[in-house]
Design a protein around this nucleic acid. Structure first.
Length: 283
DNA sequence: CACGTAGGTTAGTTACATCA
DNA sequence: TGATGTAACTAACCTACGTG
């Protein structure tokens, strides 16, 4: 296969086009039907028939809930789930726990604008069993609309979003994707508690920076094993789309999952220490 | 790398008090 | 009463920073 054909294979794999078995009709040079099809189209159809995964390690967790869209769901038992979460540190008062939805996206880059898309949306909330972490992952470009629609279904008008730098990054990015998909943006108008800012207010000048990884290390005692840096996420996803191993994409799922659990831990910690501080000031 | 946000700084505005 | 000073507040602008 020449290099152009290789690239076409990769592009078709990215587009999520189902691979059809080779057609004897089209492949046969003696066929009358084949002679009616332009050479260019015949080439494309042949390429399509040759798109095959390049790796055997293609397993991904979860279930396919729509074409090109997977859902991974896990429950983490959580001792002492509060009925209401203290978010006075951000001027949000006390928030009923059923209204909270933490979210975090993994995207194809940092460049922003319309060129960047989310390939994964993770969200966590509490149910009676503990902290539920749900992750939507698209395995083809065509899965995006279904992912956005599924995420919309997790949100209601009372939802209070929780994120880390999500006001500046995740939320505008998703707003763009909903707009391009001509869909209603479910995040518009919701209250949004971005934990980056209270962390900065408290720890600017104390720590070298206020990245979530620093918060985990310095304050939450979270140790990440085999963590894939966020900057590697776009490559991991694109590699999978090209038919390569799913190993790093599974690591992106784990990374995103940990981010969501850390967000919840951080939210509670900020609420606890703030109420302690206020009590101290009152006495 | 682009982008959006918070927070800090500076400049401008308003209200009020003081004094000759 | 008008000029001046000052404090409080607001608007505009700039910078730093975290996101995959």
């Amino acid at each position: 296969m020449n290099s152009l054909a290789s690239r076409l294979v990769a592009l078709r794999a990215q587009a999520g086009v189902t691979v059809a078995p080779p057609s004897a009709t089209i492949r046969s040079p003696s066929s009358n039907v084949a002679s009616l099809i332009p050479q260019q189209l015949r080439d494309m159809l042949r390429v399509r028939s040759q798109a095959r995964p390049l790796s055997h390690d293609r397993h991904l967790p979860g279930v396919e809930i729509a074409t090109g869209l997977r859902l991974v769901e896990r429950i983490y038992p959580w001792k002492e789930m509060p009925e209401r979460v203290n978010a006075q540190f951000a001027g949000f008062g006390h928030i009923p726990r059923e209204d909270l939805l933490s979210f975090d996206t993994e995207t194809t880059g940092l460049s922003g604008g319309t060129g960047t898309r989310a390939f994964m949306i993770g969200a966590s909330d509490w149910n009676d069993s503990g902290l539920r972490v749900r992750q939507l992952l698209i395995t083809t470009m065509a899965g995006e609309a279904a992912m956005l629609e599924a995420f919309s279904g997790w949100i209601n008008p009372a939802t209070v979003l929780v994120s880390y730098n999500g006001k500046s990054y995740d939320s505008p990015l998703l707003a763009t994707r909903y707009r391009l998909g001509r869909m209603h943006n479910p995040l518009a108008g919701l209250r949004h508690l971005d934990l980056l800012y209270p962390v900065r207010r408290r720890f600017r000048g104390v720590w070298e920076n206020c990245r979530l990884s620093t918060v985990e290390r310095e304050w939450l005692s979270v140790l990440r094993e085999d963590d894939l840096p966020g900057s590697e996420a776009p490559r991991a996803w694109l590699d999978y789309l090209r038919g390569l191993s799913g190993r790093d994409l599974r690591r992106v799922l784990e990374h995103n999952n940990q981010d969501l659990r850390s967000l919840t831990t951080l939210l509670l910690r900020l609420g606890e220490t703030e109420s302690f501080k206020l009590e101290g000031e009152a006495h």
